[in-house]
Amino acid sequence: MQKSLHIDANKCTGCLQCEMACSYENYGVFITAKSRIKIFDFENEGRKVPYTCTQCAEAWCLMACPVDAIRLDAVTGAKVVNEATCVGCKVCTIACPFGTINYVAATGKVQKCDLCDGDPACATACPTGAITYVDADWTGFDKMRAWAGKTDNATRASA
């Protein structure tokens, strides 16, 4: 059974341990600005919302890549950017309707969540259980994917 990141925003306190863990895992630096998971702060509601790639089935980024630099990891289900192949054209960044693949000027490549080869650092670092890595059926990701489906509904409905 493939696993997915499960987000429970109600449990998020906004400590940003996940962002530090993500940047450390991928760049060896503690720098929230480079994290692939982001906490969005709705101050007025007292709500913090962790947000990252859902590894959606539509794989907009993968489909849009002109040079085959984004591949499916068959084990984890993650859509993974191969930095050596990515030319930095950024087409994926405007194709992904979730805004979860982004261009990094410093590297000239795009970056996105790759589930850390099946051991996501953000989930390990989260002190409250707001981010967990669980069996895909448990995640309620279908809710978010329903939105993906909306972007693509005609195709899905009849294909």
Binding site: T13, G14, C15, L16, G46, R47, K48, P127
Partner: peptide, 11 residues
């Protein structure tokens, strides 16, 4: 709700 400062696991 409760809230954390940066890096705080107490909140």
């Amino acid at each position: 709700t409760n809230n954390a400062c940066f890096g705080c696991t107490i909140a």
